[in-house]
């Protein structure tokens, strides 16, 4: 029997929820009995994506909504982080290491670099004025 499961969560774009989001996803993924390192990788990637939505998508306004769809089939985990914020005008530029648009905040500009290092695949879909979806994939036990 293939292992197959999915879950969705939705929460406000409050920075307190960065911790909630990565812990919730980690709790769900724990059903697959991942290694400590795999779980840490996934938490990092989720944390970076949610932080991007809060800081850039919603510009630190706490009234936005962020949705996470998470599913696995056998050992392959798919995670989608969706916001309806302002979107990314130039995805390629945004994904460049050390690139950041945060002027006043101390940001390293490493969000996408971390996501790409922690996960096997990272895809970004964005429309200015409509929002951003980040789709990430990781195979466990590789």
């Amino acid at each position: 029997m293939p292992k197959k499961n999915s879950m969705q969560i939705q929460f406000s774009s409050n920075s307190l929820n960065e911790s909630f989001a990565r812990v919730a996803v980690a709790a769900f993924i724990s059903q697959l009995d991942p290694t400590v390192e795999e779980l840490y990788d996934i938490k990092m990637a989720v944390s970076e994506a949610v932080t991007n939505s809060i800081i850039h998508g919603y510009e630190n306004e706490e009234t936005g909504e962020i949705c996470i769809n998470c599913a696995y089939e056998d050992e392959v985990v798919n995670i989608e982080i969706i916001d309806h914020g302002k979107g990314i005008p130039n995805i390629e530029e945004a994904m460049t290491a050390l690139y950041t648009t945060s002027g006043d905040e101390e940001r390293a500009g490493l969000g996408f670099t971390v996501m790409q290092s922690m996960m096997d695949e990272v895809e970004v879909f964005s429309e200015v004025g409509h929002g951003t979806t980040i789709r990430m994939k990781k195979s466990l036990g590789v």
Partner: peptide, 13 residues
């Protein structure tokens, strides 16, 4: 027990 790239920005500052 956890640090993401925000911690890097904080340390750089």
């Amino acid at each position: 027990n956890f640090m993401d790239s925000s911690g890097i920005g904080m340390l750089m500052g």
